[in-house]
């Protein structure tokens, strides 16, 4: 059962539920942020949105929600956790993923399709995808400029692992293909163990033919296979 954590201000919780339960046929349940149990969830998704109004810093206040203690225990025990957009920001603020997401370089909220290249298959959301695979996934954020922090990406693997980079359609990680100024075009990362994943793109918004894009299914299916 997939536990989808609902913070005040989340707005992609139902999208995630729809993709997981209705499109992919997995069992799912909303978990209110004040709950102190994940009720036996085998997978956890922190969905996108604007938890706590993005006050102070994106994700900074959500990380103190009561449920986050349980999410941390679940992650420490190796359980698969997927943070999408604001969920990614929360996981960074909680220290479950390395780095931080800053304001977009271009002063804009960017809502657009992007191409991303799979860099590593060694994570809960990319297992089974060959490195080099190019996916088309939508983004929608004002604060998605990934920064790894001290040491930068040079120590990739030491504190975490780059999973996805923004690229052009041919898979080249060019400057022009970087929508927000993210260090190294990084669009998604995992922790060292690979069970905790954060993505700025929204796979749940690209999982049905009726939406014109099914590339996101490959991410969600990989996650559900864990």
């Amino acid at each position: 059962m997939v536990g989808i954590v609902v913070f005040p201000g989340a707005n992609c919780d139902h999208d995630a539920y729809h993709a997981v339960a209705h499109v992919l046929g997995a069992s799912a349940r909303f978990v209110w942020h004040k709950e102190t149990s994940l009720s036996g969830a085998t997978h956890v998704i922190l969905p996108g949105g604007f938890s706590y109004g993005d006050y102070l810093r994106c994700g900074a206040l959500a990380r103190f929600s009561p449920v986050m203690g349980e999410v941390r225990r679940f992650a420490d025990a190796g359980g698969p956790v997927l943070g999408i957009c604001n969920g990614f920001q929360i996981l960074c603020e909680a220290g479950l993923l390395p780095g931080v997401l800053g304001r977009n370089e271009g002063l804009r909220f960017v809502c657009a399709d992007t191409f991303v290249r799979v860099e590593s298959a060694d994570s809960a959301a990319t297992r089974g995808l060959s490195p080099g695979t190019v996916l088309r996934l939508p983004i929608a954020h004002a604060e998605g400029r990934y920064q790894r922090g001290p040491g930068g990406l040079d120590g990739d693997g030491a504190t975490g692992r780059t999973l996805l980079r923004y690229c052009d359609e041919a898979g080249e990680t060019t400057r022009a293909a970087n929508p927000n100024g993210a260090e190294g075009n990084v669009a998604g990362v995992a922790n060292r163990a690979g069970n905790v994943v954060g993505l700025m793109p929204h796979p749940e918004r690209a999982s049905e033919a009726v939406l014109g894009n099914v590339d996101g299914r490959r991410i969600l299916e990989a996650f559900l296979r864990c």
Partner: peptide
């Protein structure tokens, strides 16, 4: 613990 993100 809260007010500052020491990464940046």
């Amino acid at each position: 613990r809260l007010l500052v993100n020491p990464v940046v």
